[in-house]
Every structure is written in structure tokens, then in C-alpha cells.
Design a protein around this nucleic acid. Structure first.
Length: 840
RNA sequence: GCGAAAGUGGCGGAACUGGUAGACGCGCGAGACUUAGGAUCUCGUGGGCGUGCCCGUGGGGGUUCGAGUCCCCCCUUUCGCACCA
């Protein structure tokens, strides 16, 4: 009887489904004593089907879950579909099938594939983000944030493809062009909904200290949040300058005045406009020889002089037409124009020119910088280009106050040309100058974050409608919670157009509604929300997937969350994983969930490559799991994926490699089948030690996700069992079947049954235990070195003394060749390992 | 540019707090069984020659009785962020 994986796998997959082996009933969910929530990142159900990358992630997570289950924990391992979003919609447009038909068929295909890979998913607790019973609660979530003042609508620059008539995400713009049609993308200002995640920046950063996540993932979040400390400094715009009464400019001045009055200033500052800048280097302020504003900075139109207005307008138009990706390219030449206006450097009291340039971004800091060309590379380049003054205010070692600058000196040093601060170290001067300016009410210490507010609105069709109604009388009105979901209507023409609004804005019968407050005529928000909002809370939904009265049941949430183990790709380090943390933190603050971090443990898995190169459709080297599973069986395929490299680092997929695990399972089969007839016996002496050591190693390796070495250890053990053609007994082989079960569940089930057990190995077996004292062999291979070089290896009893070892070593002919005639100066003895004789 | 990780046989990869480099597997070589099997089983497999030695973990220094592992400098690759002030 040969090993026939396809027959076995079919049998057990059928049985698991029929007997509900892998799903938890609601009663079990509610009563579990040792709940373990084992989560993997739910897939986007693409039309291409399950990718080997998905399977790699899922298999690694499934092994962990199955192992926990064999350890006696109640493991909840759900799966779902992240099916809304631009990818699905674009693909639907391309092939001309409506997403409402395409997605369900993709999901059916994924379900088939996910069953075939042999993961123990709880098919009774599926989540599909496009199901109204799910997105109803996504909309509910939006309303909670709205009510908490964390959702607001404001104008923002977005990428717009004039050919596809749509907004594009930054990732969809390749070298300034639309990824689909190649048209050059423009910037448009559209009114967008934002979640103010920036209010949580510091906490999101602080909690990274204690959550148990892969280090690289934490680092990526830390960089993305991008905290920088420095100062905000105010530069007065020089008179003569007067705002027109009632203008925005006048309001801005009034605001500045209020600020000064608050600070107890007298009226000296009346009628003055100030431009605030953020800098991490206030120590260089004496070298700030001009200001640069982002072209779209609101102050620009008020301060520009008549003589310069034409040039300024032209430059602003050009910058505005440029797409965001090209604009942010670092290697392009610096451009900019002078506004004609001057500001006063608060440190030197001297007037400096105010320029606009596209290298200054409105979205970071205050949208304006003090340019210090002597000590900032970009400012240096700009000043050189336009002949602006460059002053040295920091001296590095060997520099004097007058040393010429051939390039920006951005390092620390000693202050020069800085008035009373000359001679101070730059590090110290940061604080000293900030305080000095603060006394004059010209600056304050400031922490700035790179993180932006999360723009969640999309002018698209395939997403959950944002549950907001606009009423002329009442303004912005949230849809009452009892009227959720706002169902996404089936729209024939869901193609985005030139208008800059969602296709839903063409559905008058849908967007015309009565105001929930006054009953008057009103209009729905026609934008839908970002897919990342769907995935920012799905893990909360799984245990309560079947509830339609609440988004998540309080008791179940308390019992099962935070997620115990979350495994996923590093590509989501900053988006999904950050948004989920933010949403959870908000829900915590609103008293809705009792924890503020959603994932107690997160481990990233590595990336798979194929025969040394990246997998891609264009290379045609994408591994499709189905073919391999059909050929080799799911057990072999799963095990090979885990064997080809360290799980957290990824590895190189080579077709020939499948032979290894397949041979292992064939030999395991050949070894166990004859044993099934025999009774239980004690493991043989030599085998017993190896068995305990193997159980210890496999257990430890799985816990650390070192699956490749766990598999190697099982192979070694099987090789030891088969060595010398001895009779193998049941006590030697049964633990191995259980060790292999997380990796190869089907063959493990079959062998378990052949060994005379009834029911599933996952409910019937216990993870084998080991006796630590039995993991150690009685003899060791002992090494003798002379001057650090190995001269002999000898088998010794464990615990041999230094004296005995030395005597044995000196009795060895080869050792003697190197020792005789020389003086032994030193003897190094490492118990049970080696003896090093230092001679000379 | 900033941040992170990694460079080990023909290949994928092992190697605990410094202590036998190359576990396990692929591939390859020889043999056994036998004859269309992607088999199975035994033995071998880092390189070099003088067959017990020499050389070997990206390169160069250093610490040490002993370095893949620790320290310094350099090179290369991959990934993330990037005109972030």
C-alpha cells in the first residue's frame, strides 16, 4: 500500500467538513476556557485566485494554530474576504463584469482553494466586507468617529487621471503617469473625509514600546509616524503691508494678534502678518537668509507685490498642474520665484526675501520653511541657483567663522556668526535659542509628525457609502444608526467620470433623501470609504460574525480579543496595521472595547521568490498553488513551503525541492503502516533519547516559527528510526505522527486512524511531552584541539573530567604528533565539548 | 539620503550565551534491486594535494587558547521611507 496523498486528503477534507471538526459553535466560543485567537490577514479575492504568497502566509499561521490546538487550547481560526476596493473595481471594469457578480464568483473560487490547502478554518464565522451585514457596521464605525469629532471634511490635493476620470491612490501613479492608461496625472483639490489619526500619533508611537511585534514592523511604523522635535518660529512680514478689511488676510492678522495678546504683548504687533515655520534646527536661525513657502500656501496671494504677481501666479499654476509624484521627486532641479515681500529674521532683526518653491510641501510642518543654505542641502542648492546669500553659522572641526562653504554642512558643530551664541555647541544651542526666541514671543518648542490624517473618502463605486446626509437647513447630518446600512445600490454604469465625484452622484433616486432631522430635502454623501477602513476592524467582527444586532458582542470580544497571534506580510506594516491600531485605540477611548492594542503578538512572514528572482506576472514565474497541490498533495506542498527557508525571512521556491518533503512522507507512511499491526512497546534505548530530543526541538521551533528546522528535526528522527533496518515499534512512531500533524494534517489523520484511534487527531491526540533529562545522550563526541586546531575526535562518556579527557587526548597518536617535544602551556577544557592544548 | 535586514558548498539553507562549519533537503556520483518508476535501498559528496595535513563562512584589519558568531573599516544585495525642513 503506497502513500496516495490525493485520496487521503480528499477523505479528510470531506470528514472535517461533515463533522464540523474545525468550527466552533457559539456555545463553544462563549465557554472556552483557554481561548486562542489565531489570525491571518484576510485575502483580497482576486480573479486570478489564491497566490502562493497567500498560501505561504496562511500555512505558517495554520501550523501555529493547529499546534496550539494540540496543546489543548480552544483555537479560533477564522477566514474572510477583503473584497471591496479599487483593485476589484478596476478588474471588473476591465473585463466588463459587474463587481456584484464578479466578487461572489471570486469568493467561491477562493473558498474552494482555501479548503484544498488543508487549513483549519472556521467556515461558520466568515466575514465578507462587501456584505451589507458587515459594512453596516463599517458605517456604524464611521459614525462613532464622526460623533467623537475624529472625522472631518476638508479640501485636499489628490492625484487625478484626466483620461480614466478618476482619483488615483499614490501607489497607482507610476513615474507621474496613471498605471492603467499612462496618461500624465494632475493634482486636484477635492473635498475629502479625514480621520484625524494625527491626534493619536504620540500614543501610536508610545505603545510600540510594549507590544510584542516583529522588530522590523515596529521600526517601519516608527519611521512612518516620523516624530521630530524642534521649534515653531514666527517671522513677521515686513511693512508696508496692510490687509484689506474683511479679507481672509485680515482674519489671519487678527488671529496673530490674539496670540500676542494672550502672551501679554502690547500693541506693537498690530497690523502685522506672521509666517510660521517648523524647524528641527533652531540653532541655525542666524543663518536663515530667506523664507520659502509652498506655492499653495494661503499667505502667498496676500504678500505678493504687484510687480511680482504675474510670475508668482504663473509658478503657482505650474506647480498645481504637476502630479504629486513628480513634484516630490528629489532629483529634479530646484525651481521657485520671489514674491517681492520680505520678512524679518527674529534673531538677526534683518529683512530676508520670501520665495515660493515646490520643494516645500504644504502637507508637512507649516508649509513654510526658514531656509538655511549654509546648513541644509536643499536650501544650499536653491540659494546657489538663485544667488541668495549663504552664511555659515555652524563650524565643524577645523572650520572658522569665515570658512567658505562649498556645500551645506548639515552636521553638528559650534555656533559662529550667531551673536551672543557664538561658541556654543549646536546641540545645546537648539534649546538655548528656542528659549531666547520664546521670550520674545517669536518661537515655541514643537513636536512635529510626518504622519498625516487618514483620507478615507474615495470618489468610487465599489465601497461602503459614507453614512452622511447634507441638508440645506441642518448642514451635515449623520445617518441615524437605526437606518444603517446605507446600502450600495446596484448601478449599471459604475465607471468613474470627469466630474470628480463618485458614480453614485449620478444616481439621483439614491442620493435624494429627506433630512433625518428636519424632514426637508437633502442629499446623501456620494463618496464611499477606503478599503482600509473595512480591514481596520474585521478582527473584531469574526467571533460575532453571525450577530446582526451588534457589530461585536461585548462578552465574546472580552474573551477572545486582543488577537493572540497575528501573522501577515510586512507590506502592511504601515497601512493596515497602523489603521487597525488607531481604530482600536479610538474604540477603547469611547469605552467600546476594553483594550487599546488589537494584536498582542504580530509576526511578519518573509517573502517567497522563485528560482532566485521575484515572482511577477510579467516574468511568468508566479507559482499557482493548485497545480502543485494536485501533483504532490497539500501536505507535501505545505511542508515544502515551510521547509524552504526560515519562515520569517522567506525563501526561494524551487520545483525540485518538493521531492524532499514528499520522500519524507512516503517513508513515514512506509514506516508507520506495518507498525499499526503491532502492540505498544517501549522505545528502544538509543531511540528514546533521540525521540525526547526531537519532541523538545520541534516544540521549541514551532513556538519560535522556526518551521524549517522543526521539519529537519523530524526528518532526522525518521532517518534514525529507519537506520539499520530494525523493527520500529508504535511507541517510537506515534509521537512523530502527532509532531507532523500541524504541518501535514491529512496524512497525520490517516496514520492516526491506522494506528487504531477513532476521531480526529486534533481532538483526540495530545502534543507529545518530553522528559528534559532524557533529551541528553550518555556519550558525547569530544574534540581535542592543539593550538585551536582540531586534531582528534573521540567518543567519551558524558561528564568526563578534565584530567581524564587530557589523559585520553595525550594517548592519541595524532594529538601526540603535535604535542610531543613541546611544552603544554595552557589547557582549556569545555565540559562535554572540547579540550584545547596550548603548546609552544 | 535616512532606516532595517542579510552575504556560508553546485543549489535552498543549518550552527545555543564565541567551542567539531556545512544539520536537513535538493542536485550530483557509485553500487544494489531490477526494468519504463518523477521509484526504493546502501555508500559518497566544500576545495586542494603529499591521506592527514593545508585552505575555506563577501573583503581587509583587530580581540581571543579558539571567531560564521564579538569590535573597527570597506564592498555587495534585498526591503521599507524619502525634497519631512
Amino acid at each position: 500500500m503506497d502513500y496516495k496523498p490525493q485520496i487521503i486528503e480528499d477523505k479528510w477534507q470531506r470528514r472535517w467538513a461533515e463533522q464540523n471538526v474545525n468550527s466552533l459553535s457559539d456555545a463553544e466560543l462563549g465557554s472556552a476556557n483557554r481561548p486562542f485567537y489565531n489570525l491571518m490577514m484576510f485575502p483580497y479575492p482576486s480573479a486570478e485566485g489564491l497566490h502562493v504568497g497567500n498560501m505561504y502566509a496562511f500555512t505558517g499561521a495554520d501550523i501555529y494554530g493547529r499546534w496550539k490546538r494540540l496543546l489543548g487550547e480552544t483555537v479560533f481560526e477564522p477566514i474572510g474576504f477583503d473584497a471591496f476596493g479599487i483593485h476589484s473595481e478596476n478588474f471588473a471594469l476591465k473585463i466588463g463584469t459587474h463587481p456584484m457578480e464578479l466578487i461572489p464568483s471570486n469568493i467561491r473560487n477562493f473558498t474552494r482553494q482555501l479548503t484544498r490547502i488543508g487549513a483549519m478554518y472556521d467556515w461558520n464565522h466568515i466575514v465578507d466586507t462587501t456584505d451589507p451585514s458587515y459594512y453596516r457596521w463599517t458605517q456604524w464605525l464611521f459614525l462613532q468617529l464622526y460623533k467623537a469629532g475624529l472625522a472631518e471634511k476638508k479640501e485636499a490635493a489628490v492625484n487625478w487621471c484626466p483620461s480614466c476620470h478618476t482619483v488615483l491612490a499614490n501607489e497607482q501613479v507610476i513615474a507621474g503617469a496613471c498605471e492603467r492608461c499612462g496618461t500624465i496625472v494632475e493634482q486636484r483639490n477635492l473635498s475629502q473625509w479625514f480621520f484625524t489619526i494625527t491626534k493619536y500619533a504620540q500614543r501610536l508611537l508610545d505603545n510600540l514600546e510594549w507590544i510584542d511585534w516583529s522588530g522590523t514592523t515596529k521600526k517601519a511604523q516608527e519611521n512612518w509616524i516620523g516624530r521630530s522635535e524642534g521649534a515653531e518660529i514666527w517671522f513677521e512680514v515686513e511693512s508696508p503691508w496692510e490687509p484689506t478689511a474683511g479679507s481672509d488676510a485680515a482674519d489671519a492678522v487678527a488671529e496673530a494678534q490674539a496670540h500676542h495678546h494672550e502672551a501679554g504683548e502690547d500693541d506693537e504687533y498690530e497690523q502685522k502678518l506672521q509666517i510660521s515655520v517648523f524647524t528641527t534646527r533652531p540653532d541655525t536661525i542666524f543663518g536663515a537668509t530667506f523664507l520659502v513657502l509652498a506655492p499653495e500656501h494661503p499667505v502667498v496671494e496676500w504678500i505678493t507685490t504687484d510687480a511680482r504677481r504675474a510670475d508668482v501666479e504663473q509658478y503657482r499654476d505650474r506647480a498645481g498642474a504637476m502630479d504629486l509624484v513628480t513634484r516630490k521627486k528629489t532629483d529634479k532641479e530646484k525651481t521657485g520665484v520671489f514674491t517681492g515681500a520680505y520678512a524679518v529674521n527674529p534673531a538677526t532683526g534683518k529683512p530676508i526675501e520670501i520665495w515660493i518653491a515646490d520643494y516645500v510641501l504644504m502637507e508637512y510642518g507649516t508649509g513654510a520653511i526658514m531656509a538655511v543654505p549654509g546648513h541644509d542641502e536643499r536650501d544650499f542648492e536653491f540659494a546657489t541657483q538663485f544667488g541668495l546669500p549663504i552664511v555659515r553659522v555652524i563650524a565643524g572641526s577645523g572650520d572658522t567663522a569665515d570658512s567658505a562653504l562649498s556645500e551645506a554642512y548639515a552636521d553638528e558643530g559650534v555656533l559662529v556668526n550667531s551673536g551672543d551664541f557664538d561658541g556654543m555647541a549646536s546641540g545645546e544651542a537648539i534649546g538655548a535659542i528656542t528659549s531666547w526666541l520664546a521670550e520674545q514671543d517669536a518661537a515655541e518648542p514643537k513636536v512635529n509628525f510626518r504622519l498625516h490624517d487618514w483620507c478615507i473618502s474615495r470618489q468610487r463605486y465599489w465601497g461602503p457609502p459614507i453614512p452622511i446626509i447634507y441638508c440645506d437647513a441642518c448642514g451635515t447630518v449623520p445617518v441615524p444608526e437605526d437606518q444603517l446600512p446605507v446600502v450600495l445600490p446596484h448601478v449599471e454604469n459604475y465607471k468613474p467620470d470627469e466630474s470628480g465625484v463618485s458614480p453614485l452622484a449620478r444616481e439621483e433616486s439614491w442620493y435624494r433623501v429627506k433630512c433625518p432631522e428636519c424632514g426637508g430635502d437633502a442629499r446623501r454623501e456620494t463618496d464611499v470609504s477606503d478599503t482600509f477602513l473595512d480591514s481596520a476592524w474585521y478582527f473584531l467582527r469574526y467571533p460575532s460574525a453571525k450577530r446582526d444586532d451588534v457589530p461585536f458582542d461585548a462578552e465574546l470580544t472580552k474573551k477572545w480579543l486582543p488577537v493572540d497571534m497575528y501573522i501577515g506580510g510586512e507590506e502592511h506594516a504601515v497601512l493596515h496595521l497602523l489603521y487597525s491600531r488607531f481604530i482600536t485605540m479610538v474604540l477603547h477611548d469611547l469605552g467600546i472595547v476594553p483594550f487599546e492594542e488589537p494584536f498582542a503578538t504580530f509576526r511578519k512572514h518573509g517573502l517567497l521568490i522563485k528560482e532566485g528572482s521575484k515572482m511577477s506576472k510579467s516574468r511568468g514565474n508566479v507559482v499557482i498553488p493548485d497545480q502543485y497541490i494536485e501533483e504532490w498533495g497539500a501536505d507535501t506542498f505545505r511542508t515544502y513551503l515551510m521547509f524552504l527557508g526560515p519562515y520569517q525571512e522567506g525563501g526561494d521556491f524551487r520545483d525540485q525541492g518538493l521531492q524532499g518533503p514528499f520522500g519524507f512522507f512516503s517513508r513515514l507512511w512506509d514506516t508507520v503502516v506495518p507498525v499499526a499491526e503491532l502492540g505498544t512497546a517501549q522505545p528502544a534505548g538509543v531511540i528514546e533519547q533521540k525521540m525526547h530530543a526531537t519532541i523538545a526541538k520541534v516544540t521549541d521551533d514551532i513556538a519560535g516559527l522556526r518551521y524549517n528546522t522543526a521539519i529537519a528535526a523530524m526528518m532526522e528522527y525518521l532517518n534514525a528510526l529507519r537506520e539499520g533496518n530494525r523493527a520500529v515499534n508504535r511507541a517510537e512512531v506515534e509521537p512523530l505522527v502527532v509532531l507532523a500533524a500541524p504541518f501535514a494534517p491529512h496524512i497525520a489523520e490517516e496514520l492516526w486512524e491506522l494506528l487504531g484511534h477513532s476521531g480526529s487527531i486534533f481532538t483526540g491526540a495530545n502534543w507529545p511531552s518530553y522528559d528534559a533529562s532524557k533529551t541528553i545522550a550518555d556519550t558525547v563526541e569530544f574534540v581535542v584541539q592543539v593550538n585551536g586546531k582540531v586534531r582528534a575526535r573521540m567518543t567519551m562518556g558524558r561528564g568526563i573530567t578534565k584530567e581524564d579527557a587530557q589523559a585520553a587526548a595525550l594517548a592519541d597518536d595524532n594529538v601526540r604528533r603535535f604535542v610531543d617535544g613541546a611544552q603544554v602551556r595552557k589547557v582549556i577544557f569545555v565540559p562535554d565539548r572540547l579540550l584545547n592544548l596550548v603548546v609552544g
